[in-house]
């Protein structure tokens, strides 16, 4: 069984209110070295068998169709999950 990991982030020019809230909380907790935060989404898609180049292509297609909205988001990573990566 293989898994594909897909990371989606807001485009830099799109305001990220959740990231802003996280940055505010970090500062209040004393993590003052972190001057900004952006929050994204991680998807894990499972397949029977190995993650081939074809599977990755299909995952990229799924990311472009549904998982990310190209108007506001960038798909920043589509990759096979490393072996033994925690579920």
């Amino acid at each position: 069984m293989g898994r594909v990991v897909i990371d989606v982030m807001f485009k830099p020019e799109i305001l990220d209110p959740q990231g802003k809230a996280v940055a505010g909380a970090l500062a209040r907790l004393g993590f003052t070295e972190f001057t900004a935060a952006r929050q994204g989404k991680r998807f894990e898609l499972q397949v029977d068998g190995e993650v081939t180049e074809e599977v990755l292509d299909r995952a990229r297609e799924a990311a472009a169709t549904l998982l990310g909205n190209p108007v506001i988001e960038d798909v920043v990573r589509v990759a096979a999950a490393p072996e033994g990566d925690a579920q």
């Binding site: 807001f10 305001l15 209110p17 108007v71 506001i72």
Partner: peptide, 11 residues
Amino acid sequence: LPGALVRNDHR
């Protein structure tokens, strides 16, 4: 329609 709707800036 163009564009998108995101979380209110004041949350």
